[in-house]
Design a protein around this nucleic acid. Structure first.
Lengths: 341, 341
DNA sequence: CTGAAAGCGCTTACAG
DNA sequence: CTGAAAGCGCTTACAG
């Protein structure tokens, strides 16, 4: 079943059939209707490989996800898929390790699949600087800002990580906590050259919450670096409690780490929130099912996915990158205790 | 950069280059070495679309996942991907709703991508019976048995669901529980015509555990049907507690439902395991981080993914389907209380 | 063992 | 508005 069969059956040439299939405007309405009817009748589906070979791009989009156990991304991914499908396009999904190189993978995907565009779920600044010059299709980085990178084909949709972390930290501070540990991130030092990396922005937000209230902040003392996983959160919380037993609250830079921390605190014989208060980040569904229900910063997965896809679909060769910020929401939870003053 | 460039640079014809690239045996060793060197030098990568157009199949595999919030599948998926990549092949991933039609999607994927083979993570018997005749590439169904379906191109790797559920239920019974509720599945009736569907097998296993101990089992009374999600588990546990307040233990057919149940029990003002004991199924990582740590049946994600991929890679046009069972493990947890007798 | 050539299914200038 | 033809990058009988 090829375009040739449709041509023969309809009495037109393959070129005309192709034009109808691709929605070219310069086709007689009657011809179009007739050919479409034959396509329908025969159940003809074009061969994507042949099309891609000629057009030098495939008809599908790709999504590259950083980190596999990331439930926030899992939720966004699901929604993105249905949006892209609703637009009549196909999607391929690729995973890369939390510490892997998503841009390297993108280069490879471009070479192998020639996608119409790529959505990145998470991304690391250094990787983009090093290698993104080699990817030429339109891309959207979701959950991390990309404006300062200045690539014309790289848009972004993200949450204001600094403000989010500032509010999360502010929530703990306003509950009376002062000895507050932080787990997550790639460095416990505030390093301006790390620029817009998500973890750095969150760390900056934590700092800001302290400084705005005239309180001292010591990043190196308060922070334990951790992978964004339950195991990472467990180990980081354990390390934190070891070296700073007086800690009264912990801010985890992701809910999934917070869940690891929850267990670690429990394994110490301590309770949340009676002994240690805890706040997460992301607002995944699981946070609401935890006992105690986890306080968190909810990123708007609906908006992030919807806008990410919309922007990508509207980007063509040559349009300008756009950078959007979507609002977040502080979700109070049972995991934070208000200290008597 | 095409095969033609390699041909020109090396002084051989494109046909010869193609033969080298595809590892055909009838090429002079010197020629092969020389052409390979040129390929390396030029950094040539073949165009998959052109290859697929000629060969009528792509060079990649597809994975179809049923249900998006399934953490067991997420773990298996990750491992499968790395195995397939290690074998030098590409992978595309597709999600379908828990109640969607994975076989319909497979038919579509075959048409659009012509994959070398498909791995199904989860699958529904009825869907396979209705539509699998239209997919002709080798497939492996992972986590659900497919032997009774009798398709020559459908292998399977799975856990013995009936035995797993029997042991889980046995664990509760041996702890002294008798009023045991079950959440999950597609029907609270044991219906032989539902055949090898996973939930039915697990329900049968539950029944067997009772009968083996000479205890009565009432599927309709004890079971609440539920989606395999936290929300589903929450609602099912709530419904169960409403209609049968004397229940002393709950078996959830997945850990993720168990987590929903945990919260539902808590919201009733009851505690696990003091008031209600709870056991899950799947053995996802999260189960070990719950407070209390969740008792569960651990499916061996390593084996399931490894064997699934190995079987698929070894299947060619015409080889026979194979059906493997991999062992599981009962993981005791803090969520089950031993009743005094 | 290697080359020349046909052809996979489609798109798109180029004529008309 | 439509047709005839070239060509996308590759593979594979077919000769030699």
């Amino acid at each position: 079943m090829t375009i040739k069969d449709v041509a023969e059956r309809s009495g037109y040439a393959v070129g005309t059939v192709s034009r109808v299939l691709n929605g070219h405007p310069d086709v007689n309405e009657k011809t179009r209707a007739h050919i479409l009817a034959v396509v329908e009748e025969l159940g003809f589906k074009p061969n994507n490989h042949a099309r891609s070979l000629k057009q030098h791009v495939s008809s599908g989009y790709s999504i590259i996800i950083k980190g596999d156990g990331n439930l926030l991304f899992a939720g966004i991914l699901e929604k993105m898929q249905s949006h892209i499908k609703a637009a009549g396009r196909t999607v391929s999904i690729y995973y890369v390790d939390e510490h892997g190189d998503e841009v390297e993978l993108a280069v490879q995907v471009c070479r192998d699949q020639k996608p119409l565009g790529i959505l990145f779920l998470g991304g690391n600044r250094e990787n983009f600087i090093r290698r993104f010059g080699d990817v030429s299709c339109p891309c959207v980085l979701v959950t991390t800002r990309a404006d300062s990178l200045g690539f014309p084909n790289l848009s972004s949709v993200s949450t204001d990580d600094q403000e989010g972390a500032a509010q999360a930290m502010g929530y703990l501070l306003d509950a009376g906590h002062r000895r507050i540990g932080i787990i997550g991130g790639d460095s416990c030092v505030i390093a301006p050259e790390m620029g817009c990396n998500m973890s750095q922005m969150r760390l900056l937000g934590c700092q800001r919450a302290f400084l705005q209230r005239g309180l001292p902040f010591d990043a190196e003392r308060q922070t334990v670096v951790s992978r964004y996983s339950m195991k990472g959160g467990y180990e980081a919380a354990t390390a934190l409690l070891d070296r700073w037993p007086e800690v009264s609250a912990i801010l985890a830079m992701s809910d999934i780490m917070a869940i690891g921390a929850l267990r670690a605190i429990h394994d110490r014989g301590l309770r949340v929130p009676e002994d240690i208060s805890l706040i997460g980040y992301d607002g995944i569904k699981l946070a609401a099912y935890c006992v105690p229900r986890l306080a968190t910063i909810r990123q708007d997965a609906d908006q992030l996915s919807r806008r990410g896809v919309d922007i990508l679909l509207s980007q063509m060769e040559g349009t300008r990158a756009v950078h959007e910020i979507v609002p977040f929401q502080l979700i109070p939870g049972e995991s934070v205790r208000v200290l008597e003053s």
